[in-house]
Every structure is written in structure tokens, then in C-alpha cells.
Simulated assay, not measured.
Amino acid sequence: MIIRPKTSWIRLLFSLQGSILVKTWKRILFVIIVSSLVTYWYWSTPETEPSLTPLPFQLIAVALGIFLGFRNNEAYDRFWEGRQLWGRMVNVSRTFARQVTMLVDPLREHDETDVETFRQDVILRTIAYVHAFRHRLRDTDPYPELEAYLEPAEISELRRHTNVPIGILQNIGGRLREAYRQRWVSEYHLPVLEASLTEMTSVQGGCERIKATPIPFAYTVLIHRLVAAYCVALPFGIYDNVQLMTPVVTLLISYSFFGLDAIGEEIEEPFGMDANDLSLNAISRTIEIDLRQILAEEEVPPPWTAEDSVLT
């Protein structure tokens, strides 16, 4: 996610960082070259009359604008739902940590140390779960990072799980069951703690649904082909009206259409590492900081910072 301070309108107009032009300039350049060649051909051979009229392009532009608008709305809905789900993850993680510290309480004084260790272990496993969840959404290896939160034996046991974060939640549930047997958790509080784990599972399921169900590929291919064909053919239909300004008009229209197409494609998958994707590293670090402070730890990691104005 791009994080930039407020700047002037002029500087924003000419800023390249975060601009979709970085991804589309090759396509636009190709169209401008074609447009320039077509313009030169018509200009150098006045006897050649354009065989296309602007009317088909006007009709196609309307339909293409509707298609692009629908596709981008769907892509942004996926992006925003992903952000809402991670907002729920922030809240439920804080709630669960608070519940562990408040509802897990020993009945015997000699259990105080064991209970304190239990609280720390469960909350550290919750932090590990959040990081493993992020890695699952980004298809990266979670194990090097999990070494800071889990014992080697537990990490080895997790390797048999294809869904590592769910395996961590299973272990947390097992820890809660042991606490119930030790009578550190009452029969009234155990369902409350279990409800938080259920909420985490629900959030993860929602994010996995977004990741596993992209916008239909056939629709994406159709949009790509329509945009490319329209922009390449456009000079043939507008030269008769704009003459030598044909490359300029083609530049403006192709920048708009190629840009909208590329933006929709980028935010369709909100959990990746593109500049405009969700800053999952920063959100995960925020959760870790909050949970470590709930444990009253004095040394906590610093907030995740943006690199070149991009917060990952």
C-alpha cells in the first residue's frame, strides 16, 4: 500500500510512484507508434480516405467503459472486503489476548507460575498464527518466522499440515482444553475463548475465499483483448476528425483504458506484494505489538515502516 504525505496538485500530477503508468507504458508506447504510423500514412497519401468512421468507436467505447467499470468495482469490492476481514483479525486477536489474561485464572496459588507461562504461550501462538496466516495468503514460507514464537518440536509437527495457521489454532485449542482440565478456565469462560478462535477461523476462511476465487479468467481475457483491439484500431477511426492530433488523442484514450484495466487486475488480488495491495506486514506487526504489550513485555518490535513510500 502506498503511503505518501499530502502534496501539491502539480507534484501529484507528475508523480510516477504509485502510478499505473509504470505497468502500462509499454502498451501505450506501442499504440502511440501505431497511431503515428497511421497518421503519417494518411497525411502523406491524401488520396487515401479513412475507411472507418468514428461511430463504431463511440459505441464500443461506451460498452468498454461499462465493462471496465464493472470489473474495477468487483476488484475493489474484493480489496475492501479483504481489508475489512483483516480489521476483524486485528480486533479478535486483541480480544482473545485480553480474554486469555483475564479469564484464565488459577484456583490454587502454586499454579500461578504455570498459568502465567500458559498465558504467554497461548498469546505467542496467537502472534504466530497471524504471521502464518499472512504467509499463507502470500504463498510464502512461514517456518523461518515461526521459529521466534514456537518450539522446534511444534514446528516439526506443523509441517504435516497443509494449512499451517489452522494447525496453530488447533494447538491453541488443545492448550485451552488442558487449561480447562486443570481448572484454570471455568466451564462458563471456555465457550467465550472458543468463540474467539472460531472468529479467527471465519476471518481466515473469508480471505481464503477471496484468494481462491478470482474474477473469471474468461472475463479478464475478454477485457484485455477488447482494450488492446480498441486502442490499436482507434487511429483509423479518428484521423478524419482530428488529423495530426491523432497520436495525442490516442495517447489520452489508451492511457485511460489501459490504466483502468491494469488497476483492476492489480487490486483483484489484494493480498499480494504489489504497491497497491494491502499492507499485511504492517497489520501483522501491529497485532504483534499489541499482544506483546498485553503481556507487559518491555521490549516490543517497532511498527512496520514504509520503504520508498510503499507499506507492505
Rank of each mutant, 00 (worst) to 15 (best):
R181Y: 13
L251S: 04
T24A: 11
S254Y: 00
Q170D: 03
T53Q: 10
S256F: 15
P247C: 12
Y149F: 11
S44L: 06
E116C: 12
E269A: 07
N276D: 12
S256L: 13
A296S: 14
I283Y: 02
T24R: 00
Q120H: 05
G65R: 07
A75P: 04
C231S: 08
T95S: 15
F30I: 12
R225L: 11
E109C: 07
P50S: 02
N171G: 11
L37E: 12
V203S: 06
I32P: 01
F258C: 02
E298Y: 06
F133K: 02
E208D: 04
R177F: 03
P301G: 06
A212K: 05
L146W: 03
R134H: 06
T53S: 15
P5R: 10
E268H: 06
L234F: 01
S309C: 03
F57V: 00
Y219E: 09
P247Y: 10
A262T: 14
R138M: 15
H110K: 01
L103T: 05
E199F: 06
Q182P: 10
P56E: 12
L103P: 08
L295Q: 15
L137Y: 01
K26V: 14
T220A: 00
A195E: 13
I60E: 03
A282Y: 02
E288Y: 03
T213C: 07
S279N: 15
V192P: 08
I3R: 15
R285D: 04
Q170C: 11
R183A: 12
R125T: 10
G18A: 06
L150W: 07
I267N: 03
E147N: 08
R285G: 10
L280A: 09
I10W: 05
A75T: 05
N276Y: 06
Q293I: 09
H189L: 10
Y143G: 04
M89T: 12
A233Y: 07
R292H: 14
Y129R: 08
S279Y: 05
V22E: 01
K6A: 11
G174Q: 09
H110C: 04
V227C: 00
Q170P: 05
L16I: 02
T24S: 14
L107A: 13
E109T: 04
E298T: 01
H135Y: 10
E178Q: 11
S51G: 01
M89R: 02
R98H: 10
G18H: 00
L68P: 04
V242W: 06
P106C: 06
T250A: 15
G205M: 12
H161L: 07
R138H: 08
D308N: 15
V22M: 02
N72Y: 11
P216E: 12
V122Q: 02
S44T: 11
V34C: 08
R71D: 02
P214S: 09
E151N: 09
D77I: 02
F257Q: 09
A262I: 09
D111G: 08
S279A: 13
I3A: 09
R78E: 08
S254F: 00
R225H: 15
K23P: 07
D114P: 03
I28P: 01
A228S: 13
G69R: 00
K26G: 04
G272A: 10
I267E: 09
E109A: 05
K6Q: 08
G82E: 04
I283W: 00
T140I: 10
